[in-house]
Design a protein around this nucleic acid. Structure first.
Length: 253
DNA sequence: ATGGCTTCATAGTGAAGA
């Protein structure tokens, strides 16, 4: 099963890119983040025409997540249970017998801000919920924009980023706590090119200079295997791109 | 260079992202 995750930074603006990417790559599942669309505006018809069904949880202006799939999704959960959250950042569904969890982890803005505390609380709630979810669904994949670069090699300039959100100790500890639930980072199961990133700032010609971070990830539970995982930089080269690139993995039961 | 883009809300600028 080919699965992918992509922070599209507005599905309204990026719909042509998404449709083009689906057509060229033919994934079984594509998780989207930052759709920035109310549910009533979700482009179901256009996606259906491309051969995909969708479940989604969106809001105006910010956040919003969706799971596109060739076959129907079941047992859909919207938002983290037991975590009071206005922001639409999680959707989970079972597809082909695999529990598929799509997340848009808070950015955190700055380690001194309330948003950083919200980010850490959100990650703790995610971990707590996943621990139970893994008991009920041993075959589980967690895809999304984690807004965490797990290691220094995931950062173009670790010194410049030191002390910043996305790389701080507590955020990385939260990522490794997910790994301690038995989840494995598909990307690091294989030899990968050095300086592999999934996000590049729109400013400073960052993409052209490859000044990026690897913050979008696909984690799989122990009951699943992975035969391939890569970052697709192609959509980042298009006109009016998202600032994130898709991550793709081939997983098997 | 505490930002050099981009999106979205708006109707001239400001928040937020990462």
């Amino acid at each position: 099963m080919k699965v992918a995750t992509w922070n599209v930074n507005s599905l309204k603006v990026r719909l042509p890119h998404v449709l083009g990417w689906l057509s060229s790559n033919q994934p079984d599942v594509l998780c989207l983040q930052e759709t920035k669309l109310e549910d009533s505006l979700f482009p179901l018809a256009a996606l259906q025409q491309a051969g995909y069904l969708a479940v989604f949880s969106g809001q105006k202006t910010y956040n919003g997540v969706a799971i596109l799939s060739r076959v129907a999704a079941s047992e859909v959960v919207y938002n983290l249970p037991d975590f009071n959250d206005e922001q639409k950042r999680m959707i989970a569904a079972t597809i082909n017998g695999v529990r598929t969890v799509c997340v848009y982890v808070p950015n955190g803005q700055d380690i001194s801000s309330d948003k950083y505390q919200y980010k850490l609380a959100w990650l703790a709630a995610l971990r707590k919920w996943l621990k139970n979810e893994l008991v009920r669904h041993p075959k589980l994949v967690l895809l999304g924009d984690y807004n965490i670069a797990p290691e220094d090699r995931d950062v173009h300039d670790p010194q410049a980023w030191e002390g910043n959100v996305l790389v701080s100790g507590p955020e990385r500890a939260a990522f490794h706590a997910l790994e301690r639930l038995g989840l494995r980072d598909c990307f690091r199961l294989f030899d990968q090119p050095e300086k592999s990133y999934t996000w590049w700032d729109y400013r400073m010609l960052a993409f052209r200079r490859n000044l990026g971070l690897r913050i979008d990830h696909i984690l799989i539970s122990g009951a699943l295997g992975c035969s391939r995982c890569n970052i697709d930089r192609a959509p980042r080269k298009l006109e009016r791109p998202s600032d994130h690139a898709p991550v793709v993995a081939e997983i098997a039961c």
